[in-house]
Nucleic acid binder design. Sequence first.
DNA 1: CGCACGATTGATTAGGGTCAATAATGGTGG
DNA 2: CCACCATTATTGACCCTAATCAATCGTGCG
Lengths: 255, 255
Amino acid sequence: MPYYFVRKLECFTRLSDENKRALIRLSQNVQLVGPHRDIIREGDSPEYVNLILDGWACRYKTLESGQRQIISFFLPGDICDPHVFVLCEMDHSIATLTPVRLVQIPRDALLGLTEQHPRITQALWWETLVTAAIQREWTVNLGQRSGIQRLAHLFCELLLRLRAIGMTENHTCPMPITQQELADATGQTSVHVNRTLQEMRAMGLITLRSRLLTIPDLDRLQRVAMFNPNYLHLNHEGAHLDANDRDASPLHAKP
Amino acid sequence: MPYYFVRKLECFTRLSDENKRALIRLSQNVQLVGPHRDIIREGDSPEYVNLILDGWACRYKTLESGQRQIISFFLPGDICDPHVFVLCEMDHSIATLTPVRLVQIPRDALLGLTEQHPRITQALWWETLVTAAIQREWTVNLGQRSGIQRLAHLFCELLLRLRAIGMTENHTCPMPITQQELADATGQTSVHVNRTLQEMRAMGLITLRSRLLTIPDLDRLQRVAMFNPNYLHLNHEGAHLDANDRDASPLHAKP
DNA sequence: CGCACGATTGATTAGGGTCAATAATGGTGG
DNA sequence: CCACCATTATTGACCCTAATCAATCGTGCG
């Protein structure tokens, strides 16, 4: 079973063997959660940091009117809010989309880890900032792009994130979510998502069936979406950091 | 001249006199920037952390098509990305909206501050997490709300944030931005914003003229917007923290 | 006073929502 | 292995919000 979160953090910087062992030791008390279950709800007080070992999950908010917005997707290896403890209560919910294997990391365990491993601290910082960048890009996506562009952009993002953790094969990646969920993420109705997907298939932009997405020409899809991958910061920006660097303050990272 | 950023951080937790003096010492080398000027551009490498002493600014992104999305607003006292140095290059731009007084804080100055003042470190953490929460709420706003609701929601958010730093008078606050900018923030055209504002005025929800916004009945506007202020975490959630607490790790904050 | 920018208005159109019905799919138990 | 049921996907008809284009009006300011 691959450790996706190790792969993910290695997108940013080199990790020592000791770093990796420490990360892997977190995977105690693995929990299995079925699909479409809440992991934590708006209003709850955060007690753990959730690390998604495998499967997909999402942040979401439900309005009084019943409308739901999916705010972001969690993929294998993603960690849900490593610094959430500063706040007293959750302002959104997190739910599984597929069956999920996760670990709930107690505050002290995570604190111990970062105290012992400056490089991991840096990498978690990078992960936090990239998460924020993704959220900003979603703001742009919902505010400025058309239906087809929103879906195209989402597919580009998910493909690159999945590729970063080694979950793609050639031009194909898993896409284990329903059209309703794509609709909730892109601020459309499922009816319109359905029609837009058909249009994208007709244009030869994608194949999507059996929960598998194929993008024959990623450049073309990126052009359709006006997608610029810079916000994902996937180019080993922390490669210059010595794996044994003592200084773990994010304010110290030398760009 | 009030120190809005001190007021803002005090929304989270109590600060000692020494904390405050240290914060105020940052205000060396104040810069005056005219309206509608870029402070930092997408692609630039971040060299400073910008602290807005006074005036309004915004994050934005421009697409190849020329469309612009305003991603967030910076109000007096806001600090632009205290932890940005982990990343090599900016994935968005920041520009002034009004004339702005700001300080560009060098990395080392900020690092020194947080090393000396654990309480400030905590408060900056809170600020970072609230900024992320605001971004999520904008995602919901753009994805799920109608034109009038988006504007109403934005006005509610801005009023509460301005009230937190003491910039409101009764039901009135400054709103020094154009309809085009409201449009770029809410993902609409300025024509439609204009019509929606007229509708809101006709409903008695707001008064907006001479760059002043009045909200006679905030509860009512909140209901229209389906606005829930919980995501702003403005209820002194860090009040329990002793101002001399030694431990500054966000993972340690006891909710 | 005149200029530039921002606000306002009107007419028309298009993208996407709504509602409702039907068809595929896939998982389950007998 | 197959029948059944629940979910998910698909289609059609119609409607409405908000975009577009273009012109005009205000207003603050040098």
